[in-house]
Design a protein around this nucleic acid. Sequence first.
DNA 1: CCGTTTACGATGCGGTCGCATTGTAACCAG
DNA 2: CTGGTTACAATGCGACCGCATCGTAAACGG
Lengths: 186, 186
Amino acid sequence: MPKRIDHDLRRRQIAEALWRLVAANGMEAVSLRQVAAGAGVSMGMVQHYFTDKEEMVLFALSSLTEQVGRRVGEALADQDDPLQRVRAVLVQTLPLDDERRLEARVAVTFLARAPVDEKIAAHLRSGYAEGHAYLVEQLRAAGVPDAEQEAFRLVALTDGLTAHTLAGHHAPAEALAVLDEHLARL
Amino acid sequence: MPKRIDHDLRRRQIAEALWRLVAANGMEAVSLRQVAAGAGVSMGMVQHYFTDKEEMVLFALSSLTEQVGRRVGEALADQDDPLQRVRAVLVQTLPLDDERRLEARVAVTFLARAPVDEKIAAHLRSGYAEGHAYLVEQLRAAGVPDAEQEAFRLVALTDGLTAHTLAGHHAPAEALAVLDEHLARL
DNA sequence: CCGTTTACGATGCGGTCGCATTGTAACCAG
DNA sequence: CTGGTTACAATGCGACCGCATCGTAAACGG
């Protein structure tokens, strides 16, 4: 076992370069050469860490969901009211600052690709299923009726607000206001 | 003025081939050659009708919004209750049958591209602004409070449900149920 | 009938793509 | 110190890309 290299760290660095590329120029801009350039490494190195482009893209996706999941977990730590927990989860996916704007851009790009890419769709489904289950749990604890349906509604609303904010249809603050007003009525 | 050819008809035919390509394989699959093949014409002909790829793509987008707008207008014809009008508009954009599924796939693809393509973003903004204005008008007529915000919420919710339905997160019928339940509470 | 204009089809060019191959330096076990 | 394995860098290949160019057939105005 020669050369002490943190394999997974390198892969995450490459994945982050891919995120930046997707956020700045969309999925069409993703190529082995562009990702390598964005990460400041050679194309040969990218090939060394990923067997092919598809694996790289899918790793970048799971790497993203992992990061978002981690941040959601942190945001949940100091919340004990169920409805506040629901809000914390949803707010973490809105593009309210630069970091989340990047994540949101990448996430929306992948979401739009899911209908034509079963691997991406499957990954997203499992992530959404997890989030949905958690929201249902908290909504029930808060005494919200129709928790199942309300969870679907909240996630769809938040994703829609995210997409529209990124498209410039309204300001981030407006999106947050729309979400908060909806939560207030529960 | 030789050859009596319906210029705009040909352009729409090419645009529809582009839709099918986007719906089936995403925006990355769009190339002059693939569009030409999908439309059953030569690549030279596509070049004859569009100065470049960008113009073709933007025409395909406005052609789509035009078609959806027309269908919404028809659906509105036999509705006089304001809330039913709101519902009619929104339901037309959900992927409830094959035709609308194709439209929705294309629409979501363009929406996801808006953050990195200002021309697309501008086009979508004007379309959404028009829809928003109409919804606000109808919501006010129905006596719904906070009509401005509620219109934003409804459109975001519907688009989110559309994206999630296309991604396989839930069935079309579930999306409709989530929307209808929300409308019932207004 | 003829010249101009439109409507294409065909071809080619420079560039980029994903990927395979090859070369090489670094490291460690024996 | 040597053989094997890892970690890259470099290069090349065939496919595809957008786009420009060229040739030509068809329709009309004169």
